[in-house]
Write a protein that binds this DNA or RNA. Sequence first.
DNA 1: ACCCTCGTTTGATCCTGATCAAGGCCATGG
DNA 2: CCATGGCCTTGATCAGGATCAAACGAGGGT
Lengths: 264, 264
Amino acid sequence: MSLEWKGIILVSLSDGSGLGDASVNSIVAGLCTSPRGCSSVCATCRVRLYAVCSALGEDDISDLERLAAHVELSPRTSLFQAGDLARFVYTVTSGTLRLQRDLADGRRQVIGFAIPGDFIGLSLDETYRFSADALTTASLCRFDRKDFTSLSHVRQSLLERLHLAATHELTIAQDHMVVLGRRKAEERVAAFLLRWRERLGRINGRSATVSLPMSRQDMADHLGLTIETVSRTMARWMRDRIILDVPGGIRVLDQQRLSAILPD
Amino acid sequence: MSLEWKGIILVSLSDGSGLGDASVNSIVAGLCTSPRGCSSVCATCRVRLYAVCSALGEDDISDLERLAAHVELSPRTSLFQAGDLARFVYTVTSGTLRLQRDLADGRRQVIGFAIPGDFIGLSLDETYRFSADALTTASLCRFDRKDFTSLSHVRQSLLERLHLAATHELTIAQDHMVVLGRRKAEERVAAFLLRWRERLGRINGRSATVSLPMSRQDMADHLGLTIETVSRTMARWMRDRIILDVPGGIRVLDQQRLSAILPD
DNA sequence: ACCCTCGTTTGATCCTGATCAAGGCCATGG
DNA sequence: CCATGGCCTTGATCAGGATCAAACGAGGGT
């Protein structure tokens, strides 16, 4: 199977994301022979302390850096498709991606959304079990899966951090099972908004304004609902002044009532 | 919080499970000072090659064995409850357990079922996020969580195997999200039967007869359905000669048609 | 300005699976 | 022997959310 990188911009666009020249450097990191020169990339990385990379200190980070390639995606482009040969693993450094599985008849399940600091590509299989698509402009650190695995054998702290990430993902997945299996429509939407806000808060700082880079359809496919149900639910909350419609997201006006929708 | 071990039989009952005297020895494994004496326990363990223990060879297994305590549960007894202090991790050696989360208003989500070889207790939290209850008589190897973690720092292969288990669990959880989010009632039941059969086949050998130690209610709570829907669906399949009712389970008569229910 | 398109909202109706209710089966114990 | 209770099955009815349908509104292109 050929690995086509549809829509990937391999050269950083200096789009004001703050990475700027560092991103350009990172593209050639795999070829970089100067330890001093390479270290500037991870040194300026905004997610370094949240991502699996945090496992490695100043002294060891260059081992990882040598393996890293920088990837930029434009909105609506695919990082990989379910079934593709799983050659790479990724750390998201900016933007939001959608992870989904598709059934033969067109039904979709959005497994989750990946945001800065998230690790993508945990898999036992030789192929990816889901597709990953950029919802916004997104940048990622790309590692060859084999190299990354090898390094994790040498630097045990990296393996520990990887295991932590997997366990964390598992917890999230199990939480979501409860939502999908036993929550009513309104509760599902509330659960999503509250958790999404919480997640964003952990990287951006807590805010009443919650950006929603995904479409209503994406939310519906994540929550096992239809787009109409999601739309109606949120419209009702807007009438009730629980949330406010803002461009690119919503603002939580009444956290109390929103939380109260979710019996726990 | 006090740790009450409701219903746990600490002494093996020699119930014909094949562990017999070895189980009795394992209870005192934590105190055992003779390497020769202790090693007999893991040496005769039927799940050793499937479980996380497989990470350790003949030479290192005694390290793990020294930490192990053997636990037996009678049917309908609890191993731990959601919210309990997570002091231990477990490997199932025989029997079936039900893992579930409960909502305040009585709704339940069965996260999954644990069978021989499965590892229970992966968690970031200080407390368990779900309850674990025995459906049948069950035996488990119990490890102090701290000790187990420490050992995994020393014996890297154990950490690797643990990470493998977590990743495997994650894959299963994500598969189940698709079932809960996008499958119709009939497809959910079919998906469950087929996967359960597959799982049992991996440890017992493939068979048309599938034992179902869980109740209809458990299946319903696993699949996000009601007991009536599960019952009606299986009753229809029995009329259609797709499956046959046998005590304690079912027999698959027509694998073809059962698989065909699941568009993939 | 116009029309497209795409995502979203809103309304009307339908249907799958939930809920309510009753009865069957079988093990246990008096 | 029958009473009890747990679990399962089956039937009747209901309703939450899906489906069908139409209109809206914000870009973007001509």
